[in-house]
Design a binder for these strands. Structure first.
Lengths: 142, 142
DNA sequence: TTTACACCCTCTAGCTACTGTAGGTTCAAG
DNA sequence: CTTGAACCTACAGTAGCTAGAGGGTGTAAA
Protein backbone atom coordinates (compact mmCIF):
# COMPACT_ATOMS: atom_id res chain seq x y z
CA UNK A 1 0.00 0.00 0.00
CA UNK A 2 1.37 3.36 -0.99
CA UNK A 3 0.29 6.98 -1.18
CA UNK A 4 -0.74 9.01 -4.19
CA UNK A 5 2.64 10.72 -4.24
CA UNK A 6 4.42 7.39 -4.47
CA UNK A 7 2.11 6.23 -7.23
CA UNK A 8 2.80 9.49 -9.02
CA UNK A 9 6.54 8.94 -8.87
CA UNK A 10 6.31 5.29 -9.92
CA UNK A 11 4.31 6.20 -13.04
CA UNK A 12 5.71 9.59 -13.89
CA UNK A 13 2.31 11.18 -13.42
CA UNK A 14 1.41 14.32 -11.48
CA UNK A 15 -0.63 13.84 -8.34
CA UNK A 16 -3.41 16.07 -9.68
CA UNK A 17 -3.55 14.07 -12.85
CA UNK A 18 -4.17 10.88 -10.89
CA UNK A 19 -7.00 12.55 -8.99
CA UNK A 20 -8.33 13.82 -12.30
CA UNK A 21 -8.33 10.33 -13.79
CA UNK A 22 -10.23 9.10 -10.75
CA UNK A 23 -12.72 11.95 -11.10
CA UNK A 24 -13.51 11.14 -14.71
CA UNK A 25 -13.84 7.45 -13.88
CA UNK A 26 -10.70 6.22 -15.60
CA UNK A 27 -9.29 4.92 -12.34
CA UNK A 28 -11.45 3.35 -9.62
CA UNK A 29 -11.83 5.05 -6.26
CA UNK A 30 -9.03 3.66 -4.12
CA UNK A 31 -9.16 2.73 -0.45
CA UNK A 32 -8.43 5.41 2.11
CA UNK A 33 -6.39 5.67 5.27
CA UNK A 34 -8.08 6.35 8.60
CA UNK A 35 -7.49 10.04 7.96
CA UNK A 36 -9.00 9.93 4.49
CA UNK A 37 -5.88 9.78 2.34
CA UNK A 38 -5.83 7.60 -0.78
CA UNK A 39 -3.95 4.30 -0.54
CA UNK A 40 -2.98 2.35 -3.64
CA UNK A 41 -1.85 -1.18 -4.42
CA UNK A 42 -0.31 -2.93 -7.40
CA UNK A 43 -3.52 -3.27 -9.39
CA UNK A 44 -3.94 0.48 -9.46
CA UNK A 45 -0.31 0.83 -10.38
CA UNK A 46 -0.81 -1.51 -13.34
CA UNK A 47 -3.93 0.28 -14.46
CA UNK A 48 -2.34 3.70 -14.30
CA UNK A 49 0.75 2.46 -16.14
CA UNK A 50 -1.52 1.16 -18.88
CA UNK A 51 -3.23 4.55 -19.11
CA UNK A 52 0.03 6.46 -19.21
CA UNK A 53 1.54 4.24 -21.84
CA UNK A 54 -1.53 4.61 -24.00
CA UNK A 55 -1.47 8.38 -23.55
CA UNK A 56 2.16 8.44 -24.60
CA UNK A 57 1.11 6.65 -27.76
CA UNK A 58 -1.37 9.46 -28.36
CA UNK A 59 -4.59 7.60 -27.52
CA UNK A 60 -7.38 9.86 -26.31
CA UNK A 61 -8.85 9.30 -22.86
CA UNK A 62 -12.01 8.03 -24.53
CA UNK A 63 -10.03 5.49 -26.54
CA UNK A 64 -8.22 4.45 -23.40
CA UNK A 65 -11.53 3.97 -21.64
CA UNK A 66 -12.51 1.54 -24.39
CA UNK A 67 -9.18 -0.25 -24.25
CA UNK A 68 -9.44 -0.62 -20.47
CA UNK A 69 -12.91 -2.02 -20.86
CA UNK A 70 -11.65 -4.58 -23.37
CA UNK A 71 -8.76 -5.39 -21.10
CA UNK A 72 -11.22 -6.04 -18.27
CA UNK A 73 -13.14 -8.57 -20.39
CA UNK A 74 -10.69 -11.18 -21.73
CA UNK A 75 -13.47 -13.13 -23.40
CA UNK A 76 -14.34 -10.31 -25.79
CA UNK A 77 -13.02 -10.21 -29.31
CA UNK A 78 -9.67 -8.69 -30.00
CA UNK A 79 -11.01 -7.00 -33.10
CA UNK A 80 -12.15 -3.88 -31.30
CA UNK A 81 -8.82 -3.24 -29.65
CA UNK A 82 -7.18 -3.80 -32.98
CA UNK A 83 -9.53 -1.31 -34.63
CA UNK A 84 -8.76 1.33 -32.02
CA UNK A 85 -5.05 0.86 -32.53
CA UNK A 86 -5.42 1.01 -36.30
CA UNK A 87 -7.45 4.18 -36.03
CA UNK A 88 -4.72 5.67 -33.89
CA UNK A 89 -2.04 4.60 -36.34
CA UNK A 90 -3.97 6.19 -39.17
CA UNK A 91 -4.24 9.45 -37.25
CA UNK A 92 -0.52 9.44 -36.56
CA UNK A 93 0.23 8.84 -40.23
CA UNK A 94 -2.09 11.64 -41.29
CA UNK A 95 -0.45 14.01 -38.86
CA UNK A 96 2.95 13.09 -40.23
CA UNK A 97 1.88 13.89 -43.77
CA UNK A 98 0.60 17.26 -42.65
CA UNK A 99 3.71 18.04 -40.67
CA UNK A 100 5.86 17.10 -43.62
CA UNK A 101 4.08 19.73 -45.73
CA UNK A 102 4.36 22.33 -42.99
CA UNK A 103 8.05 21.65 -42.60
CA UNK A 104 8.63 22.20 -46.29
CA UNK A 105 6.84 25.52 -46.26
CA UNK A 106 8.55 26.70 -43.08
CA UNK A 107 11.93 25.72 -44.46
CA UNK A 108 11.21 27.71 -47.56
CA UNK A 109 10.28 30.74 -45.48
CA UNK A 110 13.32 30.53 -43.29
CA UNK A 111 15.86 29.77 -45.99
CA UNK A 112 14.77 32.66 -48.12
CA UNK A 113 14.91 35.23 -45.36
CA UNK A 114 17.38 37.93 -46.29
CA UNK A 115 17.90 39.31 -42.79
CA UNK A 116 16.99 42.91 -43.57
CA UNK A 117 13.97 44.85 -42.39
CA UNK A 118 10.50 43.42 -41.91
CA UNK A 119 9.36 45.34 -44.96
CA UNK A 120 11.27 42.83 -47.08
CA UNK A 121 10.89 39.86 -44.77
CA UNK A 122 10.27 36.67 -46.62
CA UNK A 123 8.58 35.09 -43.61
CA UNK A 124 5.97 37.79 -43.36
CA UNK A 125 5.59 37.96 -47.11
CA UNK A 126 4.77 34.30 -47.34
CA UNK A 127 2.21 34.61 -44.58
CA UNK A 128 0.69 37.66 -46.24
CA UNK A 129 0.33 36.08 -49.64
CA UNK A 130 -1.59 32.89 -49.29
CA UNK A 131 -1.48 32.23 -53.01
CA UNK A 132 2.18 31.27 -52.73
CA UNK A 133 1.17 28.45 -50.50
CA UNK A 134 1.79 25.15 -52.23
CA UNK A 135 0.13 22.89 -49.74
CA UNK A 136 -3.49 22.14 -49.00
CA UNK A 137 -4.14 22.76 -45.34
CA UNK A 138 -7.67 21.65 -44.73
CA UNK A 139 -7.19 21.20 -41.04
CA UNK A 140 -5.66 23.48 -38.46
CA UNK A 141 -3.40 22.71 -35.55
CA UNK A 142 -1.09 19.80 -36.26
CA UNK B 1 -17.95 46.42 -47.16
CA UNK B 2 -19.16 42.95 -46.25
CA UNK B 3 -20.64 41.09 -43.33
CA UNK B 4 -18.97 38.71 -40.94
CA UNK B 5 -20.52 35.74 -42.74
CA UNK B 6 -18.98 36.83 -46.02
CA UNK B 7 -15.61 37.34 -44.39
CA UNK B 8 -15.95 33.90 -42.86
CA UNK B 9 -16.58 32.32 -46.25
CA UNK B 10 -13.78 34.24 -47.96
CA UNK B 11 -11.24 33.06 -45.40
CA UNK B 12 -12.59 29.64 -44.50
CA UNK B 13 -13.09 30.69 -40.90
CA UNK B 14 -16.11 30.19 -38.70
CA UNK B 15 -18.07 33.27 -37.73
CA UNK B 16 -17.53 32.56 -34.05
CA UNK B 17 -13.83 32.26 -34.57
CA UNK B 18 -13.68 35.72 -36.11
CA UNK B 19 -15.53 37.18 -33.15
CA UNK B 20 -13.19 35.26 -30.88
CA UNK B 21 -10.12 36.74 -32.61
CA UNK B 22 -11.61 40.19 -32.17
CA UNK B 23 -12.28 39.49 -28.51
CA UNK B 24 -8.68 38.50 -27.78
CA UNK B 25 -7.40 41.51 -29.70
CA UNK B 26 -5.98 39.70 -32.71
CA UNK B 27 -8.31 41.54 -35.06
CA UNK B 28 -9.29 45.20 -34.57
CA UNK B 29 -12.89 46.11 -33.79
CA UNK B 30 -14.54 46.69 -37.15
CA UNK B 31 -17.09 49.32 -38.11
CA UNK B 32 -20.76 48.58 -37.58
CA UNK B 33 -23.95 49.01 -39.55
CA UNK B 34 -26.75 51.26 -38.26
CA UNK B 35 -28.24 48.20 -36.62
CA UNK B 36 -24.98 47.19 -34.93
CA UNK B 37 -23.76 44.46 -37.27
CA UNK B 38 -20.03 44.20 -38.07
CA UNK B 39 -18.91 45.46 -41.49
CA UNK B 40 -15.53 44.53 -42.90
CA UNK B 41 -13.27 45.77 -45.69
CA UNK B 42 -10.20 44.49 -47.51
CA UNK B 43 -7.72 45.36 -44.78
CA UNK B 44 -9.53 43.13 -42.32
CA UNK B 45 -9.68 40.44 -44.96
CA UNK B 46 -5.90 40.64 -45.43
CA UNK B 47 -5.26 40.53 -41.72
CA UNK B 48 -7.50 37.56 -41.14
CA UNK B 49 -5.96 35.73 -44.09
CA UNK B 50 -2.55 36.29 -42.56
CA UNK B 51 -3.77 34.90 -39.24
CA UNK B 52 -5.35 31.85 -40.83
CA UNK B 53 -2.34 31.05 -42.92
CA UNK B 54 -0.10 31.30 -39.89
CA UNK B 55 -2.47 29.07 -37.91
CA UNK B 56 -2.38 26.52 -40.69
CA UNK B 57 1.38 26.52 -40.36
CA UNK B 58 0.92 25.73 -36.69
CA UNK B 59 1.90 29.09 -35.21
CA UNK B 60 0.31 29.79 -31.84
CA UNK B 61 -1.95 32.80 -31.45
CA UNK B 62 0.76 34.42 -29.34
CA UNK B 63 3.34 33.91 -32.07
CA UNK B 64 0.89 35.31 -34.60
CA UNK B 65 0.39 38.35 -32.40
CA UNK B 66 4.14 38.95 -32.58
CA UNK B 67 4.25 38.39 -36.32
CA UNK B 68 1.37 40.82 -36.86
CA UNK B 69 3.15 43.40 -34.76
CA UNK B 70 6.30 42.97 -36.85
CA UNK B 71 4.24 43.18 -40.00
CA UNK B 72 2.76 46.46 -38.77
CA UNK B 73 6.24 47.96 -38.33
CA UNK B 74 8.19 47.62 -41.59
CA UNK B 75 11.19 49.47 -40.17
CA UNK B 76 11.88 46.82 -37.54
CA UNK B 77 14.47 44.12 -38.06
CA UNK B 78 13.52 40.97 -39.85
CA UNK B 79 15.48 38.91 -37.34
CA UNK B 80 12.60 38.48 -34.92
CA UNK B 81 10.20 37.17 -37.53
CA UNK B 82 12.91 34.86 -38.70
CA UNK B 83 13.48 33.61 -35.16
CA UNK B 84 9.77 32.90 -34.68
CA UNK B 85 9.64 30.93 -37.90
CA UNK B 86 12.77 28.99 -37.00
CA UNK B 87 11.31 28.18 -33.58
CA UNK B 88 8.19 26.92 -35.32
CA UNK B 89 10.20 24.84 -37.75
CA UNK B 90 12.10 23.29 -34.88
CA UNK B 91 8.86 22.37 -33.13
CA UNK B 92 7.51 20.78 -36.28
CA UNK B 93 10.68 18.76 -36.69
CA UNK B 94 10.57 17.59 -33.08
CA UNK B 95 6.95 16.54 -33.45
CA UNK B 96 7.83 14.57 -36.54
CA UNK B 97 10.55 12.67 -34.73
CA UNK B 98 8.13 11.79 -31.96
CA UNK B 99 5.39 10.76 -34.35
CA UNK B 100 7.85 8.58 -36.21
CA UNK B 101 8.55 6.67 -33.01
CA UNK B 102 4.86 6.38 -32.18
CA UNK B 103 4.10 5.10 -35.63
CA UNK B 104 6.69 2.38 -35.31
CA UNK B 105 5.30 1.20 -32.01
CA UNK B 106 1.70 1.31 -33.21
CA UNK B 107 2.62 -0.60 -36.35
CA UNK B 108 4.27 -3.22 -34.23
CA UNK B 109 1.15 -3.54 -32.09
CA UNK B 110 -1.20 -3.79 -35.02
CA UNK B 111 0.87 -6.13 -37.15
CA UNK B 112 1.32 -8.62 -34.38
CA UNK B 113 -2.37 -8.80 -33.49
CA UNK B 114 -3.58 -12.35 -33.93
CA UNK B 115 -7.28 -11.53 -34.09
CA UNK B 116 -8.40 -13.82 -31.30
CA UNK B 117 -9.77 -12.86 -27.91
CA UNK B 118 -8.65 -9.86 -25.89
CA UNK B 119 -6.93 -12.21 -23.46
CA UNK B 120 -4.26 -12.75 -26.11
CA UNK B 121 -4.49 -9.35 -27.74
CA UNK B 122 -1.12 -8.01 -28.68
CA UNK B 123 -2.38 -4.42 -28.58
CA UNK B 124 -3.47 -4.69 -24.98
CA UNK B 125 -0.42 -6.68 -24.06
CA UNK B 126 1.91 -4.00 -25.33
CA UNK B 127 0.03 -1.33 -23.45
CA UNK B 128 0.10 -3.45 -20.30
CA UNK B 129 3.80 -4.11 -20.39
CA UNK B 130 5.61 -0.84 -20.57
CA UNK B 131 9.01 -2.52 -20.47
CA UNK B 132 8.54 -3.63 -24.07
CA UNK B 133 8.43 -0.04 -25.08
CA UNK B 134 11.52 0.81 -27.10
CA UNK B 135 11.07 4.53 -27.33
CA UNK B 136 11.58 7.35 -24.88
CA UNK B 137 8.37 9.30 -24.58
CA UNK B 138 9.22 12.22 -22.36
CA UNK B 139 6.28 14.25 -23.52
CA UNK B 140 2.63 13.35 -23.91
CA UNK B 141 0.20 14.29 -26.65
CA UNK B 142 1.90 14.57 -30.03
C1' DT C 1 -46.50 47.11 -46.14
C1' DT C 2 -46.06 43.09 -44.20
C1' DT C 3 -44.00 38.92 -43.64
C1' DA C 4 -40.66 35.43 -44.13
C1' DC C 5 -36.23 33.89 -43.39
C1' DA C 6 -31.40 34.00 -43.37
C1' DC C 7 -28.28 36.16 -41.00
C1' DC C 8 -26.48 38.82 -37.15
C1' DC C 9 -26.01 40.14 -32.02
C1' DT C 10 -24.34 39.14 -26.89
C1' DC C 11 -23.57 36.06 -23.34
C1' DT C 12 -22.51 31.91 -21.38
C1' DA C 13 -21.02 27.26 -21.18
C1' DG C 14 -18.52 23.39 -23.04
C1' DC C 15 -14.66 20.80 -25.19
C1' DT C 16 -9.52 18.06 -24.09
C1' DA C 17 -6.39 16.88 -20.81
C1' DC C 18 -4.65 18.53 -17.64
C1' DT C 19 -2.23 22.24 -14.20
C1' DG C 20 -2.21 25.49 -10.50
C1' DT C 21 -3.83 27.75 -6.32
C1' DA C 22 -6.04 28.55 -1.74
C1' DG C 23 -7.00 27.08 2.55
C1' DG C 24 -7.04 23.46 5.45
C1' DT C 25 -5.79 18.37 7.37
C1' DT C 26 -2.91 14.14 8.09
C1' DC C 27 1.22 11.46 8.67
C1' DA C 28 5.74 10.07 10.06
C1' DA C 29 10.09 11.35 11.93
C1' DG C 30 12.67 13.30 15.62
C1' DC D 1 4.74 16.99 20.95
C1' DT D 2 6.16 19.41 17.31
C1' DT D 3 7.57 20.12 12.72
C1' DG D 4 7.24 19.92 7.87
C1' DA D 5 6.24 17.42 3.88
C1' DA D 6 2.64 15.45 1.77
C1' DC D 7 -2.14 15.01 1.58
C1' DC D 8 -7.27 16.73 1.12
C1' DT D 9 -11.31 19.39 -1.51
C1' DA D 10 -12.87 22.80 -4.48
C1' DC D 11 -12.38 25.90 -7.82
C1' DA D 12 -10.12 28.60 -11.61
C1' DG D 13 -7.23 28.70 -15.56
C1' DT D 14 -4.74 27.07 -19.97
C1' DA D 15 -5.34 26.95 -25.82
C1' DG D 16 -8.27 27.64 -29.39
C1' DC D 17 -12.00 27.40 -30.46
C1' DT D 18 -17.28 25.59 -30.81
C1' DA D 19 -22.18 25.38 -29.62
C1' DG D 20 -26.39 27.01 -27.77
C1' DA D 21 -30.01 30.20 -25.94
C1' DG D 22 -32.68 34.04 -26.70
C1' DG D 23 -33.21 37.81 -29.18
C1' DG D 24 -32.46 41.67 -33.08
C1' DT D 25 -31.37 43.04 -38.22
C1' DG D 26 -31.54 43.14 -43.25
C1' DT D 27 -33.46 42.13 -47.57
C1' DA D 28 -36.53 40.34 -50.94
C1' DA D 29 -40.89 38.72 -52.34
C1' DA D 30 -46.02 38.81 -51.83
Amino acid sequence: MFTIGTLAKKTGTKVQTIRYYEQIGLLPEPGRSAGGQRRYGDSELDRLSFVRHARQLGFSLDAIRELLDLSDHPEKSCAEADAIARRQLKQVEQRMVRLEALRTELQRMVHECSGGHTADCRVLEVLRDHSECLTDHDEIGA
